[in-house]
Design a protein around this nucleic acid. Sequence first.
DNA 1: CTATTATTTTGATAATTATAGAATTATGAA
DNA 2: TTCATAATTCTATAATTATCAAAATAATAG
Lengths: 122, 122
Amino acid sequence: MKIKKAVDALTALAQKSRLEVFRLLVPRGEEGLAAGEIAEQLTIAPATLTFHLKELCHAGLVASHREGRSIIYSLRPDGIRDLMEFLSEDCCQGQPHLCQPAMSNSCREKKAKKRPKQATTK
Amino acid sequence: MKIKKAVDALTALAQKSRLEVFRLLVPRGEEGLAAGEIAEQLTIAPATLTFHLKELCHAGLVASHREGRSIIYSLRPDGIRDLMEFLSEDCCQGQPHLCQPAMSNSCREKKAKKRPKQATTK
DNA sequence: CTATTATTTTGATAATTATAGAATTATGAA
DNA sequence: TTCATAATTCTATAATTATCAAAATAATAG
């Protein structure tokens, strides 16, 4: 991942509403969530939400597809993974302690209790 | 780490010059680098650099101290670690595969070949 | 003290970003 | 077709951000 792409991804997440959208989408997985639902849950005006979703899509963090009259937004796993990787590479340049703790606390534990299978239903 | 602080850290990194400063500081460790050196290496006007450094400091990613007439900037390990942790927590909400690869590729290897001991050569 | 070097602050400007009302497009139902 | 719903695009505006010359501050040397 080159610096330009990393800046785009960071920019996409560097805004309260967008970070909240992101966090809202994480647990939904491939299911995703309709734009309207997101707007309602976060109380953001539709036009404003569209603006933010476009940023997230452009950054490659989110994908969308139409379903009836709704448009469903969901995370693009590669997006955030690439960013995490980019940041880790940096932190690890001789300073592994910078990014290590993150993993131990959250992921490790949950991973231990069996891989959730990642449902390749796409 | 709460959302406001995370947005601050992400905002600090979501800009080409600042991300470059950050990357420049990583390998310097506690040693850090004088503002002038940073400005020269990245060819940024002094006043502009000060502006960006302030953002990085405010976000808690960087610290500074005077040394003679220079002001030395260096990474604040807690800063980036907290951000990585915040993002990991999110990614791991039932989707551990989102943040896992980051660790395996970069950190793991370097960690495997014996902890570099963190050279307290300061 | 004066001069020099290193950096910051001030202040002005250009550019970008966030916000949302109104109009528009798209889909599905009656 | 007409109606209602879901979301987007258009448009304007307010707010924030990035940039840098010029002036101000800080430290040290002579």
